[in-house]
């Protein structure tokens, strides 16, 4: 028995050493480290340190769901385009809200040469996705000023919070859009537009908040996977609906002298 025991012990040890990383404890285990933590904050730091010009160009994608290969093609294409200031992913990076899908999604975006920001989508919130998003990307609602333009990222996934009346947080949105010295115009980005999943009680207030100070030059969202530019508010704020990554089309928005120019680019 002694020899057999030693052989088994030896084989087991070799097996364990060679297989490290394959051991999986739970589909809901969140143990992000390093470049998979505080991603939005890190990228914002990078963005605000870059040399700024008079034109801002943003490449938009979103709704990754289970199209990870397509996300890789998107990243490859963006890396060949000149003058992109940053990338915005409009949410649904993790189809089942699984920590592993968050890791996959970020593994592709990490190859981008320009900074990127990722918004929270409804799919990202399933299971313990809420915790995973906080851990990997940070706050659901956040804003920053880049070249005199305030970018406001808003969690509009009301249904995931059971229509609790606080999502989207309209008080916060109004505060952000309240005119101040540090910005002239604003861009509001969110995952889910008014419709199924967006709190119907907050829809009117949402449009009113956007129009309150006549300073929102564009709203951008995902969720619907197709592209269009439409004007749902009384004062005709352009709403840009971003392609789902599976269409292998991205939406490029140039902002020059407070005007927006929307183009689409295949990848």
């Amino acid at each position: 028995m002694g020899t057999t025991f030693k052989i088994i012990l030896l084989l087991s040890t070799m097996f364990l050493i060679s297989c490290e990383g394959l051991f999986d404890y739970s589909p809901y285990q969140i143990d992000f480290e390093g470049e998979n933590k505080g991603v939005n904050a890190t990228n914002l730091d990078r963005l605000l340190k870059t040399n700024q010009s008079d034109t801002i160009t943003i490449a938009f994608t979103g709704d990754t769901h289970n199209y990870f290969d397509e996300l890789a093609y998107f990243v490859d294409k963006v890396n060949t385009l000149p003058n992109i200031d940053f990338v915005i992913h409009v949410g649904d990076i993790a189809d089942f809200g699984l920590p592993k899908q968050y890791l996959w999604g970020n593994s592709y975006l990490l190859n981008l040469q320009v900074p990127y920001l990722v918004l929270i989508g409804n799919h990202d919130l399933v299971g313990n996705g809420l915790e995973a998003y906080k851990e990997m990307f940070g706050d659901f609602d956040f804003s920053f000023v880049y070249q005199d333009i305030k970018f406001v990222f808003l969690n509009t996934n009301s249904l995931e919070f059971g229509y609790n009346g606080n999502v989207p947080n309209l008080d916060w949105l109004s505060q952000q859009l309240f005119p101040s010295d540090d910005f002239s115009k604003a861009v509001v980005v969110f995952h889910m537009p008014p419709g199924i999943g967006f709190d119907p009680e907050l829809e009117l207030g949402f449009y009113q908040s956007l129009s309150a100070h006549n300073n929102v030059i564009m709203s951008v969202h995902g969720h619907q996977h197709h592209h269009e530019v439409y004007y749902p508010t009384a004062d005709s704020i352009p709403f840009v609906n971003v392609y789902g990554v599976e269409h292998r089309m991205m939406t490029l928005v140039k902002i020059y002298q407070d005007k927006i120019y929307v183009e689409n680019e295949a990848f």
Partner: peptide, 21 residues
């Protein structure tokens, strides 16, 4: 759920969807 994520995505390493115990 892992298989559903892997289908159509050759860029996801097979080792990522393995649960060893």
């Amino acid at each position: 759920l892992y298989l559903a994520s892997k289908v159509g995505n050759s860029s996801i390493p097979i080792t990522d969807i393995i649960e060893l115990g």
